[in-house]
């Protein structure tokens, strides 16, 4: 009985890894390097979360998300956020159309938010009013316009980008919205060897083509596989302690957190830690989450949930530094190994 059960799990995990490898291979056709970012984006997609990509222009953020939409064969829409954009511009609105009989009627015209993979480009350029229109879509997977509520089809994933340098004329994302992103990935510059590949790929006559290797149903099934990965109690405790470690005043918070952190992670951070860890465990060929998985995904999952106070900013402490201090203070079960 147990053998049969374990065989089922092994097959599901093997299928998961195979599809993941196929998607990744297609993405690498278009995107050179950025291994960690690709892994992070796929982790968020398969864990059922949303991603915030932060990086300077020209690093391939938009290309990555568009290629992902093509690889998973899902409707993809891109919204370029601007300060004058209104919620109706992204959600959709009722428009007056002429009927066949010559009459007129109000018809709901869907906005770009109604898709499966949404690229919210430069999300911090939109006003808070428009940004908040994303909240319902991201959390409830539905949009409400007037009296009409439209269910968004699964898998639904918002991938937002923001530029860390040009902060003038932008509206920083509110904490409530930041918390809804499963991960915040920092996109860095490519390596020297990767530059050659990028130039060969983009300045020649041949165009990189991404083929669809899976579909929406398979992605939904993969999400179910992810959810069925068990978490040992000791590992769950470790995840909880890591999240509590980011909260000033808690028993697991190191001195740096008490001094420099204004706001720590919410329980959503613990949920995100475990979901992302499950994907990592599956990809590593394991059937249960380990504390190492939790620690590995902690920077990406907790980075945007930690708010550094004025003292921290003056001391040059970043959220990544805070998370590093939490990881150093909260030891995994069995302690650190030399």
């Amino acid at each position: 009985m147990s053998r049969e059960q374990s065989t089922v799990a092994e097959e599901a995990a093997a299928g998961f890894r195979a599809v993941h490898a196929k998607i990744k291979e297609q993405l690498h056709r278009a995107v050179v390097g950025q291994e960690a970012v690709i892994d992070g984006v796929l982790t968020a997609l398969l864990a059922g979360g949303h991603v915030l990509l932060e990086g300077v222009p020209g690093l391939g953020k938009t290309l990555l998300v568009r290629s992902l939409g093509e690889a998973v064969d899902l409707p993809f829409s891109r919204i370029q956020f601007t300060p004058d954009m209104m919620p109706a511009d992204i959600q959709g609105t009722n428009v007056l159309v002429e009927t066949e009989g010559g009459g007129h009627e109000l018809t709901f015209q869907k906005g770009p938010l109604v898709a499966n993979i949404v690229l919210a480009d430069e999300i911090n350029r939109a006003t808070p009013k428009t940004q908040s229109a994303l909240l319902e879509a991201m959390q409830e997977k539905q949009i409400t316009v007037g009296r009409r509520t439209l269910e968004l089809t699964e898998p639904y994933c918002v991938m937002a980008t923001q530029n860390p340098v040009e902060q003038e004329g932008t509206y920083p994302l509110p904490e409530a919205q930041l918390d809804r992103f499963l991960m915040k990935l920092v996109v860095g510059y490519p390596e020297e060897t990767e530059y050659h590949e990028i130039l060969d790929l983009t300045t020649g006559t041949e165009e990189a083509r991404v083929e669809a290797v899976t579909n929406g149903e398979e992605i939904v099934a993969m999400r179910k596989v992810v959810r069925s990965v068990p978490v040992p109690r000791v590992v769950q405790s470790h995840a909880v302690r890591l999240v509590m470690g980011t909260q000033p005043g808690s028993q697991w918070a190191p001195a740096e957190v008490n001094e420099f952190v204004l706001l720590g992670s919410s329980p959503r951070g613990a949920q995100g830690l475990l979901l992302a860890s499950k994907v990592r465990a599956l990809l590593d060929g394991r059937f249960a989450v380990s504390a190492d998985d939790v620690r590995a995904v902690a920077p990406d999952v907790l980075r945007h949930r930690v708010m550094v106070n004025f003292q921290g900013q003056a001391a040059g402490t970043s959220p990544d530094d805070v998370i590093a201090s939490v990881l150093a203070a909260v030891k995994p079960p069995g302690g650190a190994v030399a």
Partner: peptide, 9 residues
């Protein structure tokens, strides 16, 4: 669950 059995194995 099947995954727990797989983890035990």
């Amino acid at each position: 669950s099947p995954f727990m059995e797989a983890a035990i194995e």
